[in-house]
Amino acid sequence: MPGGEYYPLADFSPWWAVIAVALVLLVAAWYAFVIWFPRWKHRPRGAAAIPEPAPWQRQQRISEHYLAEIDRVERDYADGRIDVRAAHVRLAEIVRRYTLEARGIPTLPMTLQELRQARLPELAEVVQGLYPSEFGAEASGSVRGSAQAARRAVTSAWN
């Protein structure tokens, strides 16, 4: 430019260069993390995911515990501490808690239909047998027979 004024180059702060290098390094570190670090396994959740059964020794200990609970219900009924309805309610709870502890399936809030959909035929059969005495207008039924059904579910199911 003839006759014009020249202006010197602008002086930039060195911090801009440090920030630019840091951003490039941050992006490179992110890509390295995504590529080189292992990814978490995808685990299905919900009703379709049925956990593996407990190891044999643990399974036996769990079964023995719940068989003792069933015996306690029979003794309490025989001694008159609980009535027929309370015995059946406790038996249903015992079998459901057994399923929770042995398999990790939360069956306490499940309905009979949900138990069938969860592919738990032994539990569904026992619960179906206990329903009339649990929820019927008159509490009737054999506590001994219901306890035997609960024992079969605890000793034969998933072993």
Score class of each variant (00 low, 15 high):
residue 2 P to N: 10
residue 2 P to I: 13
residue 3 G to Q: 06
residue 3 G to Y: 12
residue 6 Y to K: 02
residue 7 Y to M: 12
residue 7 Y to P: 01
residue 7 Y to L: 10
residue 8 P to W: 07
residue 8 P to Y: 12
residue 9 L to I: 13
residue 9 L to F: 13
residue 11 D to G: 12
residue 11 D to F: 14
residue 12 F to K: 07
residue 12 F to N: 07
residue 15 W to E: 15
residue 16 W to A: 05
residue 17 A to V: 15
residue 17 A to D: 10
residue 18 V to H: 14
residue 19 I to G: 08
residue 22 A to N: 11
residue 24 V to P: 03
residue 24 V to W: 13
residue 25 L to M: 11
residue 26 L to E: 11
residue 27 V to P: 02
residue 27 V to D: 09
residue 29 A to Q: 08
residue 29 A to Y: 15
residue 30 W to I: 15
residue 31 Y to E: 12
residue 33 F to A: 12
residue 33 F to D: 14
residue 35 I to E: 10
residue 41 K to I: 05
residue 41 K to Y: 08
residue 42 H to K: 11
residue 42 H to R: 14
residue 44 P to F: 09
residue 46 G to M: 02
residue 46 G to C: 03
residue 48 A to E: 02
residue 49 A to D: 09
residue 49 A to W: 02
residue 50 I to H: 09
residue 51 P to Q: 09
residue 52 E to T: 05
residue 52 E to Q: 15
residue 54 A to G: 08
residue 55 P to D: 06
residue 55 P to W: 05
residue 56 W to Q: 14
residue 56 W to H: 11
residue 57 Q to P: 08
residue 57 Q to Y: 11
residue 58 R to V: 07
residue 61 R to Y: 10
residue 63 S to H: 10
residue 64 E to S: 09
residue 65 H to T: 05
residue 66 Y to S: 05
residue 68 A to I: 14
residue 69 E to I: 01
residue 74 E to C: 06
residue 75 R to W: 15
residue 75 R to I: 13
residue 76 D to T: 07
residue 77 Y to H: 06
residue 77 Y to G: 04
residue 78 A to T: 14
residue 78 A to R: 05
residue 78 A to N: 13
residue 80 G to S: 08
residue 83 D to K: 01
residue 85 R to V: 05
residue 86 A to S: 09
residue 86 A to H: 10
residue 87 A to C: 09
residue 88 H to P: 05
residue 90 R to D: 04
residue 93 E to Y: 15
residue 95 V to D: 02
residue 96 R to V: 02
residue 96 R to D: 10
residue 97 R to S: 14
residue 97 R to I: 08
residue 97 R to L: 13
residue 100 L to W: 12
residue 101 E to A: 11
residue 102 A to S: 05
residue 103 R to H: 06
residue 104 G to P: 01
residue 105 I to M: 04
residue 106 P to W: 13
residue 107 T to Y: 01
residue 109 P to A: 00
residue 110 M to Q: 00
residue 110 M to G: 00
residue 112 L to G: 03
residue 113 Q to Y: 14
residue 114 E to W: 07
residue 114 E to M: 07
residue 115 L to E: 09
residue 115 L to I: 05
residue 115 L to Q: 03
residue 116 R to E: 06
residue 120 L to E: 01
residue 121 P to C: 06
residue 122 E to P: 14
residue 123 L to S: 00
residue 124 A to P: 02
residue 125 E to F: 11
residue 126 V to Q: 02
residue 126 V to P: 00
residue 127 V to M: 08
residue 127 V to P: 02
residue 128 Q to N: 11
residue 128 Q to Y: 10
residue 129 G to I: 00
residue 129 G to N: 08
residue 130 L to R: 00
residue 130 L to G: 00
residue 130 L to Q: 02
residue 134 E to I: 13
residue 134 E to L: 12
residue 135 F to I: 15
residue 137 A to Y: 11
residue 138 E to F: 13
residue 139 A to H: 09
residue 140 S to F: 11
residue 140 S to C: 09
residue 140 S to P: 08
residue 142 S to W: 08
residue 142 S to A: 07
residue 143 V to M: 03
residue 144 R to I: 14
residue 145 G to T: 15
residue 145 G to F: 13
residue 146 S to N: 06
residue 149 A to C: 04
residue 151 R to M: 06
residue 152 R to C: 05
residue 152 R to G: 01
residue 155 T to P: 01
residue 157 A to C: 09
residue 158 W to M: 04
